[in-house]
Design a protein around this nucleic acid. Structure first.
Length: 348
DNA sequence: AAAACGGGGAT
DNA sequence: ATCCCAGTTTT
């Protein structure tokens, strides 16, 4: 019995039942793989269902608008995944007649599909012998073979890909890949791995050398930027002023409120200089209510978000601002922190 | 080669 | 708090 055989055997009797397993539809597999990038299965599952229901095939996906896709993606994060999916769906519709490709060399050219995802789709859908290397596989390989090269160094990435390629069972690459990942997710976990019931502990370097908690090695302490967002609620009975975000910063092409970003800690009294507000909104405004600062944590940024309700009779709309009915909010893709605020304010 | 890109769960 | 999740793109 080889390492792969042992894992596959374990996989077949211990795998979770997941809706994207046991299909060979490349479109469905693609949908699941993009959703699951940097996302836990439990978090992605409801999105997978809603996307599949609304867009049962690539043609219907390609016909959607970016606003539609981002709205359905709302809350999942890494929104470029959604925007790239739309580009890819349209490319598949135009260049492949709506037939989702299954070949690695074609997949790798599509937006949002990198080495991992191209390997996953091609091996799951068509049994193409491409080895996946995701976070699970890095961990399994590092521990089992005692590889101490950092998993996120350029050298490490090549070493792990080579190791995965060598290990791949060319006769059943799809199930081999799934078994590697499921094993990493369920037994060979980052913390408290289940070495006591591990089917391959006997040949495991880390288990034999008491190095399970030392591997894999990862470097790069990401640095976190602090930002201070002052959002302004300009609303009447039925409508409010919204802002369409640009395509560079976080939450690209999504919708929030008129914003003043400051580069220092917010003043304790919560007051921005009134002249600054008048310069932005016009003279006819007054601060109505200042809400407590909300700390919103992202991977690379810590946001200190403060909402300020303004009284107004007339305001001047800036370039990316527009007035919309409250009822239209259900159609706009909102960042989590904006969504929560508006939901609470308007009892949505 | 680094940095950027969300949000949430486990420890 | 820290890590990391079925990673990819941009700088």
């Amino acid at each position: 019995m080889s390492f792969s055989d042992d894992l596959v055997q374990w996989y077949q009797s211990n795998k979770r039942q997941l809706p994207w397993r046991d299909t060979h539809d490349a479109y469905v597999i693609w949908l699941s793989e993009i959703i699951l990038q940097q996302t836990r299965v439990e978090q992605g599952l409801p999105y997978f269902y809603s996307f599949l229901e609304k867009y049962p095939d690539v043609s219907s996906f390609a016909a959607a608008s970016e606003d539609d896709i981002l709205k359905l993606w709302q809350g999942l994060g890494y929104y470029s995944r959604g925007r790239n999916m739309l580009k890819t769906a349209r490319m598949v519709q135009a260049d492949y007649g709506g037939i989702f490709p299954e070949a690695y060399d074609q997949l790798i050219k599509l937006k949002g599909i990198g080495e991992y995802t191209a390997s996953a789709i091609s091996s799951f859908a068509a049994n193409e012998p491409k080895a996946v290397v995701d976070g699970n596989v890095y961990r399994v390989l590092a521990r089992y073979f005692g590889i101490n090269e950092p998993i996120n160094s350029p050298k490490g990435i090549k070493i792990f890909q080579s190791a995965a390629n060598e290990l791949l069972d060319k006769h059943r690459p799809g199930i081999h890949n799934q078994a590697m990942m499921e094993f990493g997710a369920m037994l060979c976990r980052p913390k408290n791995p289940a070495c006591n019931i591990c089917p391959v502990s006997e040949g495991c370097y880390a288990f034999a050398n008491n190095a399970v908690n030392l591997l894999p090695v990862k470097l790069n302490k990401i640095k976190i930027r602090e930002r201070y967002f002052n959002y302004f609620l300009v609303a009447d009975e039925h409508t409010l002023v919204m802002n369409r975000r640009g395509d560079k910063d976080i939450w690209a092409n999504m919708y929030d409120l008129p914003l003043i970003e400051t580069d220092t800690l917010l003043p304790p009294d919560g007051l921005l200089a009134l002249p600054q507000l008048k310069a932005l909104f016009g003279d006819d405004i007054k601060i109505d209510e200042i809400f407590p600062v909300i700390k919103h944590v992202l991977t690379h940024q810590r946001l200190f978000v403060r909402f300020i309700k303004l009284q107004h009779h007339h305001i001047e709309l800036k370039e990316q601002w527009f007035i919309t009915d409250r009822n239209n909010l259900k159609k706009l893709a909102l960042p989590k922190v904006i969504f929560i605020f508006l939901k609470n304010i308007f009892n949505l």
